[in-house]
Write a protein that binds this DNA or RNA. Structure first.
Lengths: 211, 211, 211, 211
DNA sequence: TCCTAAGCGAGACGGTACGTCTTGTCTTCCA
DNA sequence: TGGAAGACAAGACGTACCGTCTCGCTTAGGA
């Protein structure tokens, strides 16, 4: 057996800390939490906290790991379900956000959200970048550098998510995704310039695959 | 004489504080600045600082006022120069950013940028909102709520600005503005739905007016 | 006319400040009063305060002047009433204290009382010193230096006054004065060594009585 | 072992702070010392200071504890050495004061001395009170309430100590103690009314002597 | 079964920055 | 022109956290 009981103990402590963090975020918001709060909530010694994490942000980032993994699954899943690659799996993200509504709601406005956003962004960027590099290799020229396009996609998605949360989710995840695609696709379309018909067809096919 | 000398003294103190802040941002970055640093740099008493501003962020916000005003001038100017209203005066912002490169560069990464971003966003949102509400009153339906569209615009602009700064401005302001319009216009186009021909024509006219 | 109107104005301002001080002492106790409190209460500018007094203590000392004068009158009066000079006019002080009960009560415990005490002490010392120097000139030797004796008298009187106030004046001024004389006279007696044998005998007897 | 190492650490920190305070008192006088001075001198963190003491005065009071204990020993010792109980062990205090001359000298004039005085007073009062209550239980009536007598004793002792220090100790501790007893015993004598006639006669004689 | 090393709780500690408070000076305004 | 108003520099205060550390207790897993 590879995983020793000591390891389990370590995992248990980390779980305690992560759970405490989530509890406290829901209770008072990320920014107002102190390390003392966390270790009190988790019934853990101060030095233990610092043995596992550099600081509060580090714990936050660590707590995002499951979320990141889940998101990754969604993206991979999209690829598998449809043979055609989808540029993005935005709908999955809207749905996920709806499920985790209270958590994200408690974090927007504070610095905590930045860490989540970064985690999500990294996943999106990686995925989108792969896609567009493929597009370029196909010989279609992009009028805008790839990183700009991917950042644009990620930022727009994020913006819509944020607006959605800020306004207490007045639309369904599906409607939000629709808006997102509508706002984003025109730009993508005009950017992929080599052959209008081909690119347009490809993208719309991607979009269908996604929704 | 309306403005008394006492007022001038107050203005002088605020100027001292704002200048000190800018100096220090360029020197060590916003986040690492303490109130003590500021009052040392400004040769001002601690209580004087707190008599004028709530905290460092408040001073930052106050220091953004001229920038905000300048931006507002650009926006207004755009309206006057061209009879046709332009949705946004993005080029002006790219140019302004280039001029203030060192300042913004020193702030990205820290919380300081959020305050600038908010100031700019507010100005943009106000302007864009006015525009799109007019569009709606003209009878053209938007497939996406106005606030979403404006936030989308502001966020995309912001994202490009940030990418530009992060990558040490590899393109000219004009080229950046071109990218911005290309990314954004398709989405706007597909969102303004009543009459395809009319809306498209209008928007392109706006874009011409802007560039 | 010697006293100009300006002088009257100055006197008026000082009165305002002194009255404000008294009011505030009764309201919150001397120690908790700030210069700001005083000038607010007196409706006077900050610089005006410092034009008249060095600081809060100085104002306190200034406000004690009438009290000091009144006390002086009592002492002089005592001299006139009885042909024999009295070492002290302690009864007058107990009576005066009773009249000003609330004021003193508000001051005990804080530093404010020290200033009053000093004012009273100075008056007492001056008076008592005159008396004992006369005693020495009469050829009677004091076993203890005159300043010690006078300080002893003043301090005992002060101690009784303070105890009296601290305990909300459980006895009449007359009774307090009686106690004072009883405690003090034995010591004075044994110190005034007109007859060496007698005094020595007395002291030893005292010591026996004590043990 | 009852005392844990943590306790020792705490004691060590307190000792550091107390020593720093004494050093600084000798250097610049109690009143001019700031908390920052103390923690700098003691090489201790600011929060550590406030973890142990409420403020500078509290530290002072804490630093008086050994003195208080020493004094207590003297008082107890006095009781044992002589079969006859002495009301007070004033000589010990004069001697102690001479030893700690520089320290007390540095404190008189400031608020610091009040704290020492209070510590000494409390010890004296407790001791004297015990004595006089015994006297009352023996059936001898006191013409003055016990607390007044004890306060009188403590205050006189204090007054002499202060005069002594203020005048740079012109007499030996023994001579000072002699003066003290001389001033105080007459009063005590007349107050302890075991024999009504005698005491009454004594008092009237005293009064005559005075007038 | 015992022993030893690691994980851990508890919390003292040095240190930094905060926002508040008060003081005494200085400048401007106004009657 | 002198007093009122109040902005200001200076700096101490007590609080809140931080990240480091030392100390013993507990406990798992190899001897």
């Amino acid at each position: 057996m590879a995983t020793k009981k000591v390891d389990r103990r370590i995992q248990r402590t980390r779980k305690l800390l992560q759970d405490a963090l989530i509890t406290l975020i829901l209770e008072k918001g990320y920014d107002k939490i102190t390390v003392q709060d966390i270790i009190d909530e988790a019934n853990v010694g101060r030095s233990t906290f610092y043995a596992h994490y550099l600081d509060k942000d580090d714990l936050m980032a660590g707590s995002m790991e499951p979320l990141r993994a889940e998101l990754h699954q969604h993206l991979i899943g999209a690829d598998n379900d449809h043979e055609q690659e989808a540029a993005i799996a935005s709908l999955a993200l809207f749905r996920h956000t709806k499920e985790q509504y209270h958590l994200y709601k408690a974090m927007i406005g504070g610095r905590g959200i930045d860490i989540v956003v970064k985690a999500i962004n990294d996943a999106l960027l990686e995925h989108a970048q792969t896609h567009f590099e493929q597009v370029e290799r196909d010989g279609r020229q992009l009028a805008v550098p790839v990183p700009v396009v991917t950042t644009f996609l990620a930022s727009t998605l994020q913006t819509l998510l944020r607006w959605w949360l800020d306004n207490d989710m007045p639309y369904s995840p599906e409607r939000m995704n629709e808006m997102f695609l509508q706002l984003v696709m025109g730009g993508i379309d005009s950017v992929v310039q080599d052959s209008f018909e081909v690119s347009k067809r490809t993208i719309y096919r991607d979009l269908d695959a996604l929704s």
